[in-house]
Simulated scan of single mutants.
Amino acid sequence: MLKLGFLGFGEVGYTFAKGILEKGAVCRVYAHDLCQNDGWKGEQIRARALETKVVLTDSVEDLVKISDIILGIVPSKASTSAAQCIAQYLTAGQAYCDLSSASPNVKKEAAHILKSCKGTFVDGAIMGAMATYGFQVPIFVAGEKAEEVAEKLKTVGFNLTYTGPEPGNASAVKMLRASFTKGIEALIVETFYAASRYGSQEMLLEVLADTFDRESFKETVNRYITSDAIHAGRRADEVSGVIEFLKQSDIEPFMATGTYQRLKWSESLGLKEKLKGVTPQDFREVLRLYPQKDSN
C-alpha cells in the first residue's frame, strides 16, 4: 500500500486527499502543516484531515519517516527551505516531489540539496486551476526518477505527465504557460481598452474572432513563428504606428512596446536572408535558427 505524505495541507492538499478518498484508492495519506495547531487555520486543517481520513503528523521528520512519496505543497518562497528540511530525513527508496510554483532554477537548487541524501527529487508543476480541474488537475513532472514516481502516483488517481529527466523542465513549462496566458490577458486588456475609447470594441471583437476562429491553436503558432522569420521588420514598423496611436489616445502602450522590441529582435537575426525570403513550412525550422542566448 502506497504511503503518501503531504508537506502542507491547504486547499491543494485537501483537494488531493478528497480525490484519493472518493476514488477509493488503496493509499494511506499523511500530512504536516506548520499551521495545523494555529487558531482558525488549525481548526480548518484538522477538520479537513478528519473528513478525508488524513493522519496529521507532529513533525516533518515523522511525516518523512512514514511516507513513501512526499508531495511538497508549499509556497514558492519556501521551496528551498522545504528541500533542506526534507533532506535531513529522506532515505533511499523515498521520493520528494516539489509541487510549488518556484522557478526552474530554484527547483534545480532543491534537486542539488536532495543529492545530500539517498532519496529521489522530482520537480512537479501543477498545470491548471484546482477550482477548475480538482483532483484531476494536470501535473507535469521531471527528474532522474520522475517517471517511476509518476507511475506510482497514477495508481491512486493522479493525472501526471513525465516531461524529462532534468529537474526544472516541468516548472519551465508551467512558467512559460503562465507568461503566455497572462501576456494574452494583458494584450486583450490593452487592445479592448483602446477600442472602447473609440466605441469600436464590438466590431473589433468580430474581426478578431473571424481571424482566430479559422484555424487551430497549433496552426496559429506555426503561422506566426514561420511568417515572423520573414516579415518581422515590416510588422515592427506597423506596431511603431500603433504605439504612436495609443500615446495620442492617452493610453500607455505597454504591450505594443514589448511587441515592437521583440519584432525588432527577430528582424536583427537576419532570418529573411538566411531563408532567402521563403517562409518555412514548420515553425521548428525557425526555432533551430534562434540563438542560444538572447542578446540585448
Rank of each mutant, 00 (worst) to 15 (best):
F6V: 11
L7W: 01
F9V: 00
G13P: 02
F16L: 09
G19W: 08
I20P: 05
K23M: 14
G24F: 01
R28D: 14
W40V: 13
K41R: 10
V55I: 09
E61L: 04
D68Q: 06
I70W: 04
L71G: 06
A78P: 13
I86Y: 09
Y96L: 12
D98W: 04
S101A: 01
S103P: 08
V106N: 03
V106S: 00
K107A: 12
A110Y: 12
K115D: 02
T120K: 02
T120I: 01
G124Q: 12
I126G: 01
I126T: 01
M127C: 08
A129S: 15
A131R: 12
G134S: 03
P138E: 08
I139F: 06
E144P: 12
K145R: 08
V149W: 09
T155F: 06
N159C: 11
Y162G: 00
G164R: 00
P167E: 07
G168V: 07
S171L: 01
M175G: 14
L176Y: 14
G183K: 12
L187N: 03
T191Q: 00
T191S: 06
S196H: 03
G199E: 13
E202S: 14
L205T: 15
K218Y: 15
T220S: 14
V221R: 09
T226S: 07
S227T: 13
A229C: 10
I230L: 06
G241F: 02
G241R: 05
E252C: 05
A256P: 04
T257A: 09
T259F: 03
Q261I: 14
K264V: 00
E267G: 09
S268P: 06
L271W: 15
G277Q: 08
Q281K: 15
D282L: 02
Y290N: 03
Q292P: 11
D294G: 12
